[in-house]
Design a protein around this nucleic acid. Structure first.
Lengths: 206, 206
DNA sequence: TATTGTGAAGAAGTTCACAGCG
DNA sequence: CGCTGTGAACTTCTTCACAATA
């Protein structure tokens, strides 16, 4: 899809670098060395340099990287120079919680609409944005041209809902349901499985 | 730490296999082939076999794996044969949401206590388990011998709270704060960064 | 015969180490 | 001189392919 192949993990790290750069910017710092930025991001300097090099040359030898330019280039690469609309499907316990969470907005995503089998229950739960019936997913997503969805429906419904999202034109799904989704290969799924993360810790803790 | 070195990702997959096995068990199936189980888990059969082989020989050639025995061995490996107590620190928006989330309980973790700078606000938010002042973290964690913590405090407090958790004896932290935590190497940190996951999707969606 | 267990090959990602340049 | 950019070495993980075996 991209010219050179970029390790998938490098994309995650890019986001982390961006956060660190924002903090540096807020502190009024104008340049930063790979060593310093790498330390803040919790990686090795060489890896940071390699990650950035996938996208071009941004540093000045002997000096380091310009904080603002670099931050802007990362936003550009991540497709984040403009606000991305997102829909959320399944405004149950976890879903409505995520709607209260400020972190998405803070990073430039706008959750424009939520969908639930029982919209009124969601509204009662205190959801502040519009909640529509899940039957309206198709038209809304198509009409608004939304590309990203957050999926928080119970495991048993996840695949069916995912199919509808994909049919409606969704290209990326952040999936909180503990299910392995099957989607066409042009659609990207990112699984966040909370119980699984705890289990993983449990392995290392004796 | 372990005898042979097991790919870290294999541990994640083990959890996924376990889920699939539970479903098979519920369907009354007694054995399963690597091909079938791998398909359900979304991996290649050879990888499944290799993952299991790190822990011993469980299959029967020509037949497959016994569903129940295999599930039990995975629970054993993951340290999940018995209930694990967990504490949650930071019962704000995300934190109190996670407390409502049933997924942890369902997978055998018990969130025994929550801590917050303002416990009463958390109770008002409808948290059902005990909420104590964050000043009591140390004594509680020590007295109860809790090993796992879920960390949902605002970014600015995360490192300080993590330090206290570690000092109190916590060995694994599931960290929802968008911060790179510094901890002693015997402590395991698992980062779940929701905004970062959305950013990652955003890269693949044009 | 069907399916596991595994050494060996291959792919992917990380780190080193140093040349190149401001 | 200091720090970036990068080919090459290394490490880690995945897949293949087939011998072993119930």
């Amino acid at each position: 899809m991209e010219k050179v192949d970029i390790p998938k993990k490098a994309i995650y790290r890019l986001s982390i670098y961006h956060r660190c750069l924002q903090r540096l910017h807020d502190n009024g710092q104008e340049t930063v060395s790979s060593t310093a930025l790498a330390k803040a991001a919790g990686v090795k300097p060489a890896q940071l340099r390699k990650d950035l090099a996938y996208f071009g040359q941004f540093g000045t030898r002997g000096l380091g990287y310009p904080v603002d330019t670099l931050a802007s280039m990362i936003r550009d690469v991540l497709g984040r120079e403009r606000l991305q609309p997102v829909v959320l499907v399944g405004a149950g316990n976890l879903g409505s919680a995520l709607l209260h969470y400020q972190g998405f907005q803070k990073e430039g995503f706008e959750v424009v609409c939520a969908f639930d089998a029982d919209p009124e229950a969601a509204v009662r739960r205190g959801v502040a944005i519009p909640v529509k019936s899940d039957k309206e997913i198709d038209t809304f997503v198509k009409d608004e041209g939304v590309k990203l969805a957050i999926l928080c429906v119970p495991a048993g419904f996840a695949q069916a809902v995912a199919n509808r999202l994909v049919a409606a034109g969704i290209q990326g799904i952040l999936n909180f349901s503990p299910v392995v989704l099957e989607v066409p290969e042009e659609v990207v799924v990112n699984n966040v499985d909370l119980a699984l993360e705890l289990e993983h810790l449990s392995f290392f803790v004796r």
